[in-house]
Design a protein around this nucleic acid. Structure first.
Lengths: 211, 211, 211, 211
DNA sequence: AATGAATGAGGCTTCATTCAT
DNA sequence: TATGAATGAAGCCTCATTCAT
């Protein structure tokens, strides 16, 4: 067994945990299985982490970070509607691209809710907050209040979560493609009716750096 | 310790299991906890059920039945749009009314997917099929093909599942009320753009009793 | 369920127990299985017997009685050698005829030894004693001391037990027939060398009725 | 608590299992008792073996190996009759020397028959095959066909098994010594009548070491 | 840094037995 | 007489965790 830095080992365990959680569920993700998946000794898990709980906390952070990435890699010049749709699409596409992540994320949400109550909310809040702030940026100088961006963020979350549940249940890529289109059209039509079909195609002028 | 009929005990165990699953998750739903919740002895579980698996199968049936009820208690005279929105609203309202059910349902979906593969899909399929057939009934003599009713069913599922995830995570009733309104408006605007804003308010003439 | 006399019920349980012991072993003979085999309710076992132990004691008596029968139904006129061989043959034949009995008998011997020590010996002693006394009867006025009849009894037991082990292991009737012949020839040749090849075909004169 | 290699621990468990099986029977040989007998923790059993079944398979192998040893450590120069009698005597002597082994062997035969059907036969077959091949070796250039060696092997098995049943039932060493003599004389006289009293004492010439 | 050995707690299940009707 | 309902003890097995090297 090659000597690997502790930091690398921890990363390996996090990724291994995602896979194992996806395959066996959060409670089927035993330390033994995670160690095996990571190609490490069982005792190594507790050498790198004080407890399984600690490892899962890291996995949790990893998932949160992923969501953060998915909601910040947007075109700062794009209008609100386009930005909203892109965030939804990117998220759904990443779910499809990485089913393990999708499953693990939902499992971790449940886990966090059960184990930590408020912490479960925190993931949601952080992810939603990312969406919200991105939306506010994209709103630019248009007259859109926070309540509205909140609603949009909620809707994106609805659709993304709903899509995830269906996708991980069926695991059918072709079906998923169709569902993504439906979700997109749902969001589009709702945005139109919510924000009006007007000027959102108007090229935007001002643009400050985001974040 | 009153002597209760085995049939009644089985019902008790099913309800107890829903509660315990909601609180501790599907894997935290140990026979001991379920027995305790049902006010019964641990061995009693195995007097009523051959195995924990068998009990869970009953819980599963219970959830499927609930979804069936939620998608069939509609006004057969009502137009498609109204029926669709009612199914979504009823489902969400039942989730809010019975958070345990909401959590347990999501947990069971994951459980069924992991343990039984196709069976997990079956729950979804059955629930969706209920929605679809109700929609087809409601379509009446309007010219709406099956692909469209399928899309509508999918969208209802999206929004219901997405709502559920948010509701069980936050557990905030006021927030849930807002989310329900958003989900309803999302569905409404999408239906309008999908089906057209036309005659669906026209009183429907023909309509024999279904089933 | 017809009302059956308690005595009959107990007999049913004994026979059921023999079958179940033969199939599942002494420890696999659970009260539930015995009740099922007897077509009775589980609680009925404890209605007829204070405990499983008590039932088994009855089964034990049943087996002992069977061995007694097998060693007393002989021709009182026959010479010693013939009587000895007949007892062995009858026993082996009954084993073959009733494999359940054969298995159950061996299981019960082990059970009695483990549970009761001296009681296990008792079965053996009773069976051997039956053989011995029958042999002494058959010895008639020939000059054969008790040590010799003991030896003969032992040898019969050897061969019968050894045959039983092989028979219940293979369960092959054709093989069993061959083994029976071998056992018989072994006994015959040993008796010849032990008692001498002399007058044992001489018709016997005296003969008082035995019991 | 000394740290012992897993291989050693497995050996310990096998020996412990033999003792426990001898004392409590095959079904009374619980993992807890075996662990206790081996001076180990209960969970240790499952650290060394995947299941109790696996442990028992090892015990089974151990017994088979013992029988193999008992039927192969013979004088390759000795004549058939002597070899046959030695195998029987050695087996009986080992039974007396190690009563636990004797009991465990009989219990395992029953266990294997119940649990595995053909596997139970396998033990017998292997042991018998050892006897047979040793006899064939010992037959040398004498004109003895396979049917005859088979018969002899059967007779040895008869007598050994029959002796075992008596010995483990009574547990009386003095009695056992007498029984061994009887068994030996039975075998001797039968061999004489079966093979003829002729040349088997003639020194054998040819005979290279086998294997 | 790494790992084989070890363990207490708790999981599901089965059993003989008793209770109440 | 007969039987469904109920239970405590004990079975096998798995888990996260720790110890010793």
């Amino acid at each position: 067994m090659p000597r690997i830095s502790a930091a690398q080992r921890r990363q390996d365990f996090v990724h291994a945990a995602v896979e194992v959680i996806a395959t066996h569920g959060i409670d089927g993700a035993t330390t033994r299985r995670i160690a095996e998946q990571a190609g490490a000794n069982l005792a190594m898990v507790h050498y790198c982490y004080d407890s399984k709980e600690d490892l899962f906390a890291d996995v949790y952070e990893f998932v949160v970070g992923k969501f953060r990435d998915l909601t910040t890699t947007v075109d700062p010049q794009a209008p609100l509607e386009q930005t909203a749709r892109k965030m939804l699409r990117d998220t759904m596409e990443y779910y499809v691209e990485s089913p393990s992540f999708a499953v693990a994320a939902l499992e971790l949400i449940n886990w966090a809710r059960r184990q930590h109550g408020s912490r479960g909310i925190a993931l949601f809040d952080q992810a939603l907050e990312g969406v919200r702030s991105t939306l506010r940026e994209a709103a630019g100088d248009r007259d859109i209040d926070d309540a509205t961006t909140d609603e949009i963020a909620s809707t994106i979350a609805f659709l993304a979560d709903g899509f995830a549940v269906g996708w991980i249940t069926y695991g059918d890529r072709d079906l998923a493609e169709k569902q993504m289109k439906i979700a997109d059209s749902v969001l589009e039509s709702w945005l139109t009716s919510r924000l009006g079909a007007t000027n959102h195609r108007t090229p935007r002028r001002r643009r400050a750096a985001s974040r």
